[in-house]
Design a binder for these strands. Structure first.
Lengths: 338, 338
DNA sequence: TTGTATGCGTTATCAG
DNA sequence: CTGATAACGCATACAA
């Protein structure tokens, strides 16, 4: 099956009776070119089904057409959504997507990434949260000569190198929704200290409570680490207080699921006795019972834009950097009891 | 910060007073080489912190050191696990992982993949289910000169090009477990027609029922498409029959979650009134209430081995191709009522 | 507007 | 065992 040989730029040059350089010009869309010759060459290219060899280009340009995706597994859903989004925009280009899961706690993190970028001569890299909050890492990538776009939940960088969601506003809306449903005792489970997203969601909670004219009861505040077990523990704690909340906002879905388990264990019925709202709209959210009201990032669209900023900065650098999140209203949040 | 210039093979050659070719020989571990010269060159390499340029190698060898991961999103968990597994084995090599999500229903699927492999000059590709069941696709990849390893739930290929889990046995064990708990009316929700994994799990169910001395009631059989909604519908159907099952095995976790919803909607208490078992151990399984008993593939280990078979076939081709799955016993399956 | 000569960093060929 | 020299496929400088 394997066809004899892939056509090279030489074949195209010979068959169209011009020099390699001319062919190279039409490939790279050089402006100074006779329209006639261009069309002639393009015809031959089409006829031969010629595709320039990226490796040769990489060598000559000293730069590869590879986009790196570096992350420390925020959650599977997000990583996959990002991959799909990036692919949406580079699918029919010469770019390819190289992935690199890492451990942000590794002492050799920076070295590893340094080596990775240098070895693969990456064109650009995309950083996912919480790695994207690491300024030192971003600087390293840039020093190595590759563009960086960061994904996050706040203004981590200038608009040309950022796609962000406004977590603060989204959480504020969620809390407002709870207030609208008649809840006044609203519990909050924060994400881990040091995470920008955790901080933003916290600020959103405060803003939302203020907006609704509600006061914040410190007894109804807890902190988790974005993992199920921590949500479970925080839920047990919050529900065990003298005057427990009628609604709990957890800073991500995993912790929200933990709260749900805690409630079930206490014999509470969700949402009848307790409303719960999460954040991220992972697969968990739609599949637990009751289906979880949560906040959704337009991840795929964000990744599409990020890939544009990475591969075609001249046209996309000024594309919107901020994407509105959306409150997905499902069954886990209802009118307050009593 | 960017260091002046990366050292090339020429620098190494000059500083160690040998020819480029000799340096090339030590890099590629050529057997015919004077031990003394080898050590001398290696010293210089270490001193210069020299790393061969993969693009140049790719050009000269007409083959890139890229492993492609082609999939049609079986589930986020699996894809990510596979990526991590592959990275485990290639992390400190010159290989990189490039991913390619595709749509298996696209009419241009084969063409797209053809172009992708040819353009990137992939070294090898890994195929995930259900794409891995496509023999035509596997053949295409091989014709294009790259090794293929397929991941699946049956003997899809010879052992050098396969990592597989024995779904049949795993399901059989799960059913046996249900029987042991006293269940006799066991419902089964099959996966979509045409999926190899669905077929294997079906056979496992039949075997398990036989093993337990139970007869299969056709009224307790349903079919879904591996998605939540289909599990929901199948659950409603099964639970609505005259003599409903006391336990249901769903061929994956998403459908199992659907069954759970159906049960909750009917006011059934899980697991008290109905036991449920799923398959895959996705994030959903651990996070729904009650936690779902399910079957887990050792995905990461499988991917590690797959990457070995891909990058070092001479040493790994005969590594084990079959990996035992494990029944994860959680709270959703308990003793039969009454 | 187009062509010539040369370089990119590595490996293969084939002498020595 | 080792080394000149020519690929590999494309891009850049500089001419023409």
């Amino acid at each position: 099956m394997a066809k004899a040989q892939k056509p090279t730029i030489n074949d195209v040059a010979r068959l169209s009776g011009v020099s390699k350089k001319t062919v190279s010009r039409v490939i790279n869309k050089s402006p100074l070119l006779n329209q006639a010759t261009r069309e002639k060459v393009e015809a031959v290219i089409a006829q031969l089904d010629y595709v320039p060899n990226p490796q040769a280009r990489a060598l000559a340009l000293r730069r590869n057409f590879l986009i790196g995706l570096i992350h420390d597994n925020p959650n599977a859903q997000m990583v996959l959504g990002v991959q799909e989004g990036i692919l949406d925009t580079i699918r029919s280009t010469e770019f390819a997507l190289v992935v690199r899961p890492v451990d942000r706690h590794s002492p050799t993190l920076l070295d590893d990434i340094h080596r990775f970028i240098e070895q693969q001569r990456l064109y650009g890299v995309m950083l996912l949260p919480p790695l994207s909050e690491n300024d030192e890492l971003a600087r390293l990538c840039r020093d190595l000569g590759c563009t960086v776009v960061r994904m996050g939940s706040a203004r981590l960088d200038d608009e040309a190198h950022l796609v962000a969601s406004n977590d603060q506003e989204a959480v504020s809306d969620a809390v407002a929704w709870l207030a609208e449903l008649g809840h006044t005792r609203i519990g909050f489970i924060a994400g881990p200290d040091g995470f920008r997203s955790a901080r933003e969601r916290e600020l959103g909670f405060i803003a939302g409570m203020g907006r609704a004219g509600l006061t914040i009861d410190p007894a109804l505040l807890a902190r988790g680490n974005y993992q199920f077990e921590s949500g479970h523990a925080a839920g047990q704690h919050l529900l065990g207080t003298a005057t427990p909340p009628t609604a709990i906002f957890a800073s991500n879905d995993e912790m929200a699921a933990g709260v749900l388990h805690a409630a079930c264990e206490r014999g509470l019925r969700v949402p009848h006795d307790l409303s719960i709202i999460g954040f991220d709209d992972t697969a968990i959210a739609a599949h637990i019972w009751p289906p979880l009201t949560t906040v959704r990032w337009p991840i795929r669209a964000m990744a599409r834009t990020a890939a544009l900023k990475l591969t075609r900065p001249e046209t996309a650098a000024r594309d919107a950097a901020f994407f509105p999140s959306e409150l997905v209203r499902r069954a886990s949040a209802v009118r307050a009891p009593g």
